[in-house]
Amino acid sequence: MKDIKTLLKLEWEKTFWNGSFRAIIATYTLLFLMVVLIGSQVGLNINGVRVDKLFVFPHVWQTLSWIASWFNLLLGILMIVLVTSEFQFRTFRKQLIDGISRPQLLIAKGGVAVILALFVVAITLTTAITTGLLMGNAEQVSAFSGIEILLVLFIQALAYLVLGILISFSVKNTALSILSFILLFFPIEPIIRAFFSSETGAFFPMKSISDLTPMPDFFGIAAGDLIQINQQFTPEGVAINEPTISWISTITVVVYIALFSFALRAIVAKRNF
């Protein structure tokens, strides 16, 4: 435990002052808050249904998780920058010389990934609570119904980050790592997936990761509201509004995170620094 604390202290010391880290975190936060602000305030209409319906409790959990996931790719890129810069500065080598073990190099970066994923959850949670309080509550449904999507968001963010670490340790070069990361999402995996049925395709890593936080069922929510207005048609109308969490995808992604971690262990154990 003391070791992990020291490792995280060490990571903090070098990460906090890193210009790329500050820039990417600031960009992430700003973009996320801007999209939420604009989405909830502009009063956009789609086919006569107001978009701001998505920002009331409890729909806000899924909506904000979905928005946060747009920028998770950015965090993956941040992780790549953090890891590959250590190759560039040859500071992994220095840390090994100074007495950090190879597994500890990984534990330290894994710790950063967990903290970044928690940051995503924290910012989504606080923004969702603030937005929900400002925008109000859909009737008859608990404000916190569907909050478990935040756990799924955490797993998704962690998956992007661990994949970023894996690509960085394999490729080492910053630009090439970022390129590989993006190309893997599009078009490499989609092309490979095209040769498989959609049922099988759903278990591919990139697909299952991005499927975790689906777009909120906008028309379902709108329809639910209409049904609620016309009470006579709706004995169990609210069921339509429940956010849909694919637990199978979630488990698949957890398995992928484990596989990525094992691959990383093997790569780092073999690597000459």
Binding site: E13, K14, W17, N18, G19, F89, R90, T91, R93, K94, I97
Partner: peptide, 10 residues
């Protein structure tokens, strides 16, 4: 080992 390796921004 070889040349000094440090974090340039620190």
């Amino acid at each position: 080992l070889e040349v000094p390796h440090f974090y340039p921004y620190l």
